[in-house]
């Protein structure tokens, strides 16, 4: 993008000296860094709590521990019935299945809604939006009964199959919005070149949708990784439990909570999503750069 580095309008820019520009840029970064500090504070707090001895976590509001309790990490990793990598692995399986499911099923539905004409399109679209609005707590029991009768409780299926069936309508909506923003002439050109609907979807729309797909993948990762409720209900077996469930196992609201281990493993749990976000973010930028729309 060919933007001016300062918020000043383009005409007066010529009159600004390089020094003024430098000062402006400095202030600009200063403000951003200040904002960044506010955003990052919780992470620093958590990091500090994860390294504090237990009698200091709540009694001392400062960020620097008096002694560095690296043992919290080793303790947290091994304190539960399984070593922590087991929970990370279980979470990863669910996340991978969910991402795959959402990318394929939601983009297919979105293409149909955005580009194809069929009877009851408006109504189905409204229903699709309606499902975003559905509060989970009430369908949870009927859904549980359904999956229980399929024999799927204590398997990963109740967490992955809904994604394969595009029940995350949010992502359909997201991709519909993106596809609707693409020039329709592209589809028509593809059609002239002999592409069918599947060809257009695969060769024209999907490559252009990279940003939306990357967004879908990132959000699916984050939400699935942090999702507590459905994992709690469907994964009861100690061997299938995931990171959010494992973190809660350190807690007991009326007994002993292993705070040091809890914070240490919270930091560890943040690693994969932050890593994926960083990688995905770069991919998102590159994905946009390689698409035809500049």
């Amino acid at each position: 993008m060919t933007e001016t580095p300062t918020p000043a309008p383009s005409k007066p820019r010529a009159k600004q000296s390089p020094a003024t520009l430098g000062v402006k840029r400095f202030v600009f970064h200063l403000v951003l860094i200040g904002a960044a500090m506010v955003m990052i504070y919780p992470l620093l707090w958590m990091l500090s709590a994860s390294l504090k001895p237990i009698d200091e976590i709540f009694a001392d509001p400062g960020l620097i521990p008096s002694t560095w309790e690296w043992g919290n990490y080793a303790d947290g990793w091994n304190a539960l019935p399984h070593p922590f990598e087991k929970y990370i692995w279980n979470s990863m399986i669910i996340v991978a299945g969910s991402i795959l499911g959402n990318l394929v099923s939601c983009s297919m539905a979105a293409y149909a809604f955005a580009r194809l004409r069929f009877p009851m399109r408006g109504m189905l679209f409204a229903i699709m939006l309606g499902t975003i609005m559905l509060p989970i707590h009430v369908v949870i029991i009927p859904q549980y009964i359904l999956f229980n009768n399929l024999g799927w409780v204590d398997t990963f299926w109740p967490l992955i199959v809904p994604k394969l069936l595009a029940t995350d309508a949010f992502f359909i909506f997201l991709m519909v919005q993106f596809i609707r923003g693409l020039p329709k002439e592209l589809d028509e050109a593809a059609s002239i070149d002999g592409c069918g609907y599947w060809g257009t979807y695969l060769r024209v729309i999907m490559p252009l949708c990279m940003p939306a797909l990357a967004t879908t993948a990132i959000f699916t990762f984050i939400w699935t990784w942090n999702d507590f409720y459905s994992q709690l209900i469907y994964l009861r077996d100690i061997d299938l439990q995931t990171v959010p469930l494992a973190l809660r196992l350190f807690m007991d609201s009326t007994g002993t909570t292993n705070w040091g281990a809890l914070f240490a493993m919270s930091i560890v749990a943040l690693g994969p999503i932050f890593g994926f976000f960083l990688a995905g973010q770069r991919y998102l930028v590159r994905g946009i750069a390689t698409t035809g729309i500049k």
């Binding site: 394929v104 099923s105 939601c106 297919m108 539905a109 293409y111 149909a112 809604f113 194809l116 004409r117 069929f118 009877p119 399109r121 189905l124 699709m128 394969l164 069936l165 595009a166 359909i172 069918g196 609907y197 599947w198 979807y201």
Partner: peptide
Amino acid sequence: RWAALSFLSPW
């Protein structure tokens, strides 16, 4: 229409 149905079937 048939294409739409096939795209929408998982959903």
